[in-house]
C-alpha cells in the first residue's frame, strides 16, 4: 500500500526572480523565455514520489512578487506547510527582499513551516552577484534549507522540491490541505473536509 501526503507550499520572492518559471519547470518541465507576470497568485499541484511507496502531493501557491501586493500574501502563506523563498543570483537586492519575506514568515506563518531559500537563474553564472557562500551562511544562521536552481536549464529544480518533501514530517499524518481553508469567520463543514481529503487519496483502489 502506498501512502500519499499532501502539503501546501507557497512561493515568495521579489518580482521577476523566476518563481513562476521555477514552478513551470517543476510541474511541467517546461521553460518560456518570457513569462507573463503573475497577478494575484497561481495555483498548481504536483506529486513527487519518495522511497517506500510514499508520495507527496504539493499544492503550490505561486504568488505575485510585487512589493505592494504583500498585503495579500498572508492569505497564501496562511497554514502553508512549506515555503520556497526565491531570489535572483544576479540581483543582490532580491536577496534582501528574500530576507524580508523570511522574517515575515518566521513571525507570521505557522511555526512548523519548512522554509527553503532558493537562488534562481543559476545559468547566468557570468552575471552572478550573490555568492553561494553568502546565501548559504545566511540560510544556516536562520536554519533554512538552501539551494541554487536554474529554471531555464532545469538544474537543481526537482532537487529542492524533493529535499523539501523529505524534510516534511511524514511520520504523523500532515494536516490536509482542507485545514488551510478553515479561515476565521468561515466555519468549514468537517465532514466536507474529510470527504474532500478522501477523494484526493489515490490509494482507495
Amino acid at each position: 500500500m502506498s501512502k500519499q501526503f499532501q502539503f501546501k507550499l507557497v512561493l515568495l520572492g521579489e518580482s521577476a526572480v523566476g518563481k513562476s518559471s521555477l514552478v513551470l519547470r517543476f510541474v511541467k518541465d517546461q521553460f518560456d523565455d518570457y513569462r507573463e507576470s503573475t497577478i494575484g497568485a497561481a495555483f498548481l499541484t504536483q506529486t513527487v514520489t519518495l522511497e517506500h511507496n510514499t508520495s507527496v502531493k504539493f499544492e503550490i501557491w505561486d504568488t505575485a512578487g510585487q512589493e505592494r501586493y504583500k498585503s495579500l500574501a498572508p492569505m497564501y502563506y496562511r497554514n502553508a506547510n512549506c515555503a520556497v523563498v526565491v531570489y535572483d543570483i544576479t540581483q543582490p537586492a532580491s536577496l534582501e527582499k528574500a530576507r524580508t519575506w523570511i522574517r515575515e514568515l518566521q513571525r507570521q506563518a505557522d511555526p512548523s513551516i519548512v522554509i527553503a531559500l532558493c537562488g534562481n537563474k543559476g545559468d547566468l553564472e557570468a552575471r552572478r552577484q550573490v555568492s553561494q557562500e553568502e546565501a548559504k551562511k545566511y540560510a544556516d544562521e536562520e536554519g533554512l534549507m538552501w539551494g541554487e536552481t536554474s529554471a531555464k536549464s532545469g538544474d537543481g529544480v526537482s532537487d529542492i522540491f524533493m529535499a523539501i518533501a523529505k524534510k516534511l514530517p511524514l511520520t504523523a499524518p500532515p494536516p490536509r490541505a482542507g485545514a488551510s481553508r478553515n479561515t476565521p469567520g468561515r466555519p468549514a463543514v468537517d465532514l466536507n473536509k474529510q470527504a474532500a481529503g478522501d477523494s484526493n487519496d489515490p490509494c482507495a483502489c
Binding site: S20, V27, T47, P202, A204, C205
Partner: peptide, 15 residues
C-alpha cells in the same frame, strides 16, 4: 480510477 482522476486535475493545473 481515482488515481487517474487526480492526474486529470494535475494536468489541468498546468499554467
Amino acid at each position: 480510477p481515482l488515481g487517474q482522476r487526480n492526474q486529470a486535475v494535475d494536468a489541468g493545473a498546468g499554467p
